[in-house]
Design a protein around this nucleic acid. Structure first.
Lengths: 211, 211
DNA sequence: GAATAATTCATACGTTCGTATGAATACCGG
DNA sequence: CCGGTATTCATACGAACGTATGAATTATTC
């Protein structure tokens, strides 16, 4: 009953549907989210999804690209910064933690898409590919200047990304099981610091002034 | 009412429903999996789920515990083995990779349970808790004998677990994006070795004969 | 072998689903 | 003001959903 945004006309309706769809899809899964609920909570008419996105699935793919793009953009910025490779990898970890904390829906949306078994839409694949290239770019730079332990590019990138994603995803269960609340900013900062240290030790050669 | 010790033919139906439910739930999600499809593919009658598990949700929780328990049991065995803590951590990583490769449904099931937002069933929480205790037990042992870098117990355990789970979960997308097929045993062994080395460097102090 | 319990089965009920349809309403260049 | 396009809206439709119900069948026990 609480419209995410008052739909004035056209573009407003579209963005309200994307915002509401993102929340409802993440919470209930693709099948669990009904067109009726999304349109009602977005303050639009039942037919709005069909009209603007063709179908429920059309809205879903629009939601995916809308939520993935800003994250990968920020990873790209972190990767392009000045500094030693290992420090830029730390920035990537930080970007992931921050963005996922602000958008906890994202991992759920992504993994539900993957779990569905069907091949991901081309747009989504392209975005993920871009993200992988940013990270492997940093890694290769570190291998070239001898500051990072050599290893498999994609697997190393996955090692970096998996921890922020997994911790964000499992946050409710982690609180239930271990009493650690990653929703709390202080605790999340602690987790981010832990992962950054872990990645540093795992990928870099020991450095004299290692923290 | 659900009999706790059903004799005869009933047990076959129960296990057929659990096996089929596990596959279908993992593939289509909770809402996407229909009672009609599960019962049909299990070769049982439409009413069998209601009769044996009370409801669709009852079957779902039975599936979760049935698939989680053997994994945690194996982690417990690995944790109880002789050897240095860092090596037993490597065994845990290996157990995860092997078990998840044989049961790729598991992470999807878990994820959907977490993403649903509702608190996890007590039985599931207890199993996860047991798993966390096995791993933190190894860690604390390593901290006591000085072979492991001190750190947060639960966060360190999450760092270990997150990578096998994430890689298994994202395997289809990883193949689509990077052309790396974790379904192939050789590639999976390479990934396991990578993660074991990563964990070793990330958690242990550098050792003279480090492999 | 009859009585009793356990299980399977066919079917029905009410609900909710995604989408289609066509009328109503708002916007806009002329 | 007007004609046309874009959007919103109310409603309808057929399909699929989870579960309930009671009869039919199979197993167990005396």
């Amino acid at each position: 009953m609480t419209p995410t945004k008052a739909p004035g006309r056209g573009e407003d309706t579209r963005s309200a549907l994307v915002a509401t769809g993102r929340r409802v899809f993440a919470h209930s899964g693709y099948d669990g989210a009904s067109v009726r609920r999304i349109t009602r909570e977005a303050g639009t008419n039942l037919g709005a999804i069909t009209y603007h996105f063709g179908s429920k699935r059309g809205l879903y793919e629009a939601v995916l690209t809308h939520v993935l793009t800003p994250l990968v953009d920020r990873v790209g910025e972190a990767a392009a910064r000045a500094g030693r490779p290992i420090e830029r990898l730390g920035c990537v970890v930080e970007v992931f933690f921050d963005y996922l904390a602000a958008n906890p829906d994202l991992p759920r949306l992504m993994l539900q898409e993957v779990a569905a078994g069907r091949p991901a839409p081309d747009a989504v694949v392209a975005i993920i590919q871009r993200n992988a290239m940013y990270i492997t770019g940093i890694l290769k730079e570190g291998w070239a200047d001898g500051s990072l332990r050599p290893g498999h590019p994609l697997l190393s990138a996955l090692s970096v990304v998996s921890q922020p994603v997994y911790m964000t995803l499992m946050a409710p269960l982690i609180r239930q099981v271990g009493g650690v609340d990653l929703g709390d900013p202080g605790t999340r900062a602690e987790a981010a610091a832990h992962v950054m240290a872990f990645v540093r030790s795992g990928l870099a050669f020991a450095s004299p002034e290692a923290e």
